[in-house]
Design a binder for these strands. Structure first.
Length: 907
RNA sequence: GGGCGUUUGGCGCAGUGGGAGCGCGCUUCCUUCACACGGAAGAGGUCACUGGUUCAAACCCAGUAACGCCCACCA
């Protein structure tokens, strides 16, 4: 047992305690030997942070929540494991390494694929564990002894098994089509990796001359937001029902494409809407997905005019070599020069951007690998419909359904070097090709050298296997370790993550798990946590410069305060506006309060007889309900343990944090500690009981608070004589509500409520008349209501507690007490409190106050009487409510007549 | 164009049918032996608006408005 220092210094304790937890091996499944093997296991997988990642507020929140769940489950005795690891993060990591090369004036092509991949591995070993260290700084109780990585050898095996299986079941195929292309990353992206943003651009109206005039028409006007793509136009489309153009269709009209001098057909297609633009659409099959479809339907040529870096290629004639931005300007200028620019309008439209580098996406025609999603999605939809997987809050299920029900094939190939290379092998000699789980050098049919596909897989393709690949699935031949682990610990209990990866990640884990693990779901619950916004409600972003660095918060306020501050603000429906000053001050003050309350407890234990307080069965200090104050705080503690819900109620982090805050501050500190001062001063049995209860209540709340504030609770817990033999609070037993239920005590609560009312009345009287708190006062209390006689007795017994809070000259409590002369009156729920003011105050002020009080109560009474006069209320309301209303009205009426009486007494 | 969320005292937020709460800030008082990152007493709100259901609505229903987020191939 150590003495608690005068001030709470988070920086002094955090590192030391974390090390002691590591040394105790509490982060593993058996919690250093303290887990209860008979209990159900509890497992969650961390959303693997990118190796390029540094802790941001979203991580701070998400990992706080996961650690709360993990620590609570561990204390409840469940064999608990929070599986840790990182994601290789294809594009992000490749960008970092390319940037490093660029600093040396090199590109990846200069060093070659092999050396580049090697450089990525080196980068990862150098920087990839940054975020892991930051998680430790937060106090996260992940299983650090077995860290996973999405490119571990076992993970590679998993990837290849998945790919080969889907390939052989025709769920993976290669297709030539328009995909989202990032010209800066020079790779394809999946649809959900494209972020759309509304931008104000232009709608350019271009004139395309007809080869042969038809009627009055010598040219067509088409509207476009991307004039540079006209270089690749191979048709112009109109709606078949559009009468303006029906003559053109009948005549089989053609236009001569300006600048390119190419003759292209005018045709009719239902896709074209009559009322947008001019009703005539330029068709660029190689650069627009809709145009691609129309091109397919009408046999148009697909003319690619852009390079992979989004420069105009040789097909672009004299515009070749320009960037797409330059080409846009040049094309518009050329049209203007030719008198073919009809007009320009401002136009708002959504533009796609790369989610990794924000570059404008180019729809681009290329050969890519796709996964057929419909077949996979169906069982995944069903798993959520049947509540085998439950989202919290439930409304996110709608988002999931909406996407899953409209799912499109998933483009999984990336033109990168860092990642899982697509395991498809080709024989150029005989045309053989196949997907293989093991590399193969020569063709099995003709013996020629094989060539492996150049592309790598989308990072999310590997992430989707995370919940089971981290168990070592699939087993190496001859081993069944993973199978055993999965049988014992799969599915995991909960996955906590941000909403923006519901599609990218959550949905895909459900699909792949159902497919590869015999219909098993990857997790039972999904927590979609709020988004952390700045205090004005804006998304935190680099460009806004409004981000808050969690590391600074930890440094300045401590990890516990950050965790508590975040947890406190988690509610089901609302995003989290993070006002650093307010939240962190609140949380830090709370930590200080707990620290000081604990110091108070330890400072009053010099003669504590622990052995007399130990419960033989548990070996821990047990409570002793001696005084009403003792019985009251124990009863309140019983309520608290019941309030911290089990199961999904345990996801109500804000509710739990608030319950703990208000119990500790407003009940334990504000009242019980104050009451205890009187008891301690009395010595004997009262003192002993107070000591036991202070230790017991503090012990219990530290346990309850530990998942949210692990460091400070551990530090204090190590310093108080709770009697528990466990070496760490991390592995101490969770207070079960059932074990505390017998402490509930309605009578004690009533008694202390009355006492608090008396104290409140005296304090208010002092404040009102400017009487010094040091001035001892004569106080008479008349108890009223149902338990008047008993309450009078109970109050009289609490004189020591009363005296710890207010200076008393004399005290009397009785059901038939009489108001002393020259006294003020305060009427509360079950008591009328008279404070003798003889010679202390000006009674005119007391008169004014009483009149105000009377008027207020009269107004309240009128409200209740109106209600009671309402026939509907009497006929239909719950009898209990009616009874309560009647009682309240009677009480008010009595109070008013009391006040009237006092007013006349003043005369 | 669809969908979702939010709207409660100056600020940030709780509160899912029976007398409006918390923290910060504000006013007044108090540095006595846990804590001034504290204690005590106060002031401050027609719970966005309109209509409906109900004996009773911040809470349920319908609609409106503002703000925010997500999804969507109209050039």
């Amino acid at each position: 047992m150590t003495e608690l220092s005068k001030n709470y210094e988070h920086s002094e304790i955090e590192g030391r305690l974390f090390k002691s937890w590591l040394d105790g091996a509490y982060f593993g499944r058996d919690a250093g030997g303290f887990a209860d093997k008979d209990k159900a296991p509890y497992t969650l997988v961390i959303p693997p942070p990118n190796v390029t990642g540094v802790l941001h507020m979203g991580h701070a929140l998400n990992n706080t929540l996961q650690d709360i769940l993990t620590r609570r489950a561990r204390m409840q005795g469940h064999p608990t494991r929070w599986i840790l690891g990182t994601d290789h993060a294809g594009i992000a990591t490749q960008n970092k390494v390319e940037q490093k090369l660029a600093d040396e004036g090199l590109t990846r092509f200069d060093v070659g694929r092999e050396a580049f991949v090697q450089a990525c591995w080196e980068w990862r070993s150098k920087y990839g564990s940054t975020i892991i260290e930051q998680l430790k700084g937060m106090g996260c109780s992940c299983d650090y002894s077995d860290e996973k990585f999405t490119m571990d050898p076992g993970y590679v095996t998993a990837i290849r098994k998945v790919f080969v299986d889907w390939f052989h079941h025709d769920l993976i195929y290669k297709g030539h089509r328009i995909i989202n292309w990032c010209p800066r990353c020079t790779t394809a992206l999946a649809d959900d990796e494209v972020a759309h943003a509304d931008e104000t651009g232009h709608l350019w109206y271009l004139r395309y001359p007809l080869v042969q005039p038809v009627g009055d028409l010598s040219y067509l006007v088409v509207a476009t937001t991307r004039p540079e793509t006209m270089l690749g136009d191979t048709g112009v489309a109109v709606n078949p029902a559009d009468e303006r153009y029906s003559a053109l269709i009948e005549a089989g009209a053609q236009v001569r494409l300006p600048l390119m001098d190419r003759v292209i057909p005018v045709f009719a297609d239902d896709y074209v809407s009559v009322d947008f633009g001019t009703g005539a659409v330029k068709v660029t099959p190689a650069h627009d997905p809709n145009d691609f479809d129309m091109g397919q339907r009408h046999g148009l040529e697909q003319l690619n005019v852009l390079t992979e870096g989004a420069m105009v290629n040789a097909n672009g004639g004299r515009f070749a070599g320009m960037t797409r931005e330059q080409a846009r300007e040049a094309v518009v200028a050329a049209f203007e020069e030719l008198g073919l620019l009809d007009h320009v309008e401002a136009h708002q439209h959504a533009v796609g951007h790369c989610y990794r580098c924000d570059t404008t996406i180019e729809p681009w025609l290329s050969e890519q690998w796709f996964v057929k999603m419909k077949v996979l999605a169906e069982p995944a939809i069903k798993a959520v419909r049947t509540e085998r997987v439950v989202f919290n809050p439930r409304r996110w299920e709608n988002v999931y359904f909406q996407w899953m029900e409209n799912i499109r094939d998933w483009c999984i190939s990336r033109q990168l070097w860092w990642g899982h290379r697509i395991p498809v092998f080709y024989c150029d000699a005989c045309g053989w090709k196949d997907a293989l789980e093991e590399d193969l050098a020569v063709c099995p049919t003709c013996g020629a050298a094989l060539r492996q596909d150049e592309d790598v897989l989308d990072t999310w393709f590997s992430s989707q296997l995370w919940p089971f690949a981290t168990y070592g699935w699939p087993d190496e031949p001859g081993e069944d370790t993973a199978a055993k682990e999965l049988a014992a610990y799969y599915p995991t209990q909960v996955l906590s993550t941000a909403r923006d990866i519901i599609f990218l990640w959550v949905a895909r884990m459900v699909m792949s798990s159902l497919y590869f693990l015999d219909g098993e779901v990857p997790f039972e619950d999904v927590i979609i946590h709020p988004t952390v916004l700045d205090k004005h409600g804006n998304i935190m972003s680099k460009s806004r410069g409004n981000g808050i660095d969690p590391l600074e918060l930890i440094d300045e306020y401590g990890a516990d305060s950050m965790r508590f501050g975040l947890a406190l603000q988690v509610t089901g429906s609302q995003d989290l506006k993070f006002d650093k000053e307010k939240v962190m001050t609140l949380a830090r003050n709370f930590a200080t309060k707990i620290w000081n309350a604990s110091r108070y407890v330890t400072m009053n234990l010099e003669d504590f007889d622990q052995s007399a307080a130990i419960d033989e069965k548990t070996g821990r200090v047990a409570p002793l309900a001696l005084t009403d104050a003792d019985r009251w705080i124990l009863s309140r503690l019983a309520s608290l343990t019941a309030e911290l819900g089990e199961g999904r109620e345990g996801y109500e982090f804000g509710v739990i944090a608030r319950a703990l805050y208000s119990f500790i501050w407003n009940e334990f500190c504000d009242w019980y500690i104050e009451f205890s001062k009187g008891q301690l001063a009395l010595g004997g049995a009262q003192r002993a009981a107070a000591q036991r209860n202070l230790v017991f209540v503090l012990d219990t709340v530290l346990r309850l608070l530990h998942p949210m504030m692990p460091f400070i609770t551990e530090e204090i817990w190590q310093s108080i004589p709770h009697g528990d033999s466990r070496p760490s609070l991390m592995v101490a037993a969770w207070p079960q509500a059932a074990d505390y239920a017998s402490l509930a005590d309605a009578e004690a609560e009533r008694s202390v409520d009355a006492l608090c009312a008396v104290i409140g009345a005296v304090r208010a009287t002092q404040a009102r008349y400017g009487i010094s708190p040091k001035q001892p006062l004569a106080v008479v209390v008349k108890t009223t209501g149902e338990h008047a006689a008993l309450n009078a007795e109970l109050l009289a017994q609490q004189l020591p507690q009363l005296q710890s809070l207010v200076r008393i000259q004399s005290f009397e409590a009785a059901a038939d007490a009489v108001k002393p002369a020259q006294s003020s009156v305060t009427i509360a729920a079950a008591v009328e409190v008279y404070v003798v003011l003889d010679g202390l105050v000006d009674f005119e002020a007391e008169r004014d106050r009483l009149i105000k009080e009377r008027d207020k109560k009269t107004a309240e009474l009128a409200k209740l009487e109106k209600k009671l006069a309402n026939e509907g209320f009497i006929a239909k309301a719950d009898p209990v409510v009616i009874e309560k209303t009647r009682a309240d009205a009677a009480e008010l009426a009595a109070a008013i007549s009391q006040i009237e009486q006092q007013l006349s007494d003043l005369d």
